[in-house]
Amino acid sequence: MNNNPYLPELATIQEIITETGNIRTLRITLNDKDRMERFTFRPGQVGQISVFGTGESTFVINSPPTRKDYLQFSVMKAGEVTSRIHQLNAGDQVGLRAPLGNGFGFDEMKGHDILFVGGGIGMAPLRTLLLYMIDNRADYGDITVIYGARSPKDMCYTYEFEEWRAGGVNLILTVDAEFPGWKERVGFVPTVLSEVAPSPNNRIAVVCGPPIMIKFVLFGLTELGFEDQQIITTLEKRMKCGIGICGRCNAGSKYVCLDGPVFSYDQIRAMGGEL
């Protein structure tokens, strides 16, 4: 990065994929080819995308560092900036400040079995780590993914599911209610989790999704015998600077933008409330 951490690098949207009714995936490249070549990051690190004139917002880089043709971000339409992003087209310019945040401890996860539990847009941060592990498949044991969405229409990355399965991933899909033509599981993610009941032995669980899902999944994992430090999740907060200065994204003394967004469950417990 340059010496002004507030100054975004210019980037161009190469491709936009419509994932669901309110989620779009952007594939962008930095305009500076050299920088794009040298750009490195850890899975789970985030970027601040600028739409100049509207503002900045934080998204996880959900393509893995092992695949560098573009940087991928999935954006759910919610507020001012995300609505603006949804109006952009391929070829449009945005600003990018990345990589920011801590990312997943993928090295410490080596040799372990992995359980991913994702809900809705929460699959985005998991995808980067999942693809990284597929690209380094020998380093990891069993990889099980439980991915749930409200309906099949609300599921992201459906076009990749075959690739994931081919990469040696036990992919379990579920939707909240019966849907015509749906052949996979039906039921809420926490319920499916207790049905699948993965063994906590030598396993790390990585969880991301809406707060209510996280709450019950954490409960379910504890039931299954997972220790707090075996459970990893990512936090979200309103952010501005993204570099641990502006003060708003704190949970206790930790800044989600700088010390996170990835935390283990025991770390989160130590932070106190206000999540």
């Binding site: 507030y6 100049f52 004139g53 503002g55 900045e56 502006c246 003060g247």
Partner: peptide, 24 residues
């Protein structure tokens, strides 16, 4: 107290990114 906000203000094709005092 140093916490701040960052907002964009633009008119037509030009604009500024502002940093301003904010309050918790």
């Amino acid at each position: 107290c140093y916490c701040f906000s960052i907002t964009d203000e633009a008119e037509n094709l030009k604009g500024e990114r502002l940093r301003s005092w904010d309050s918790c």
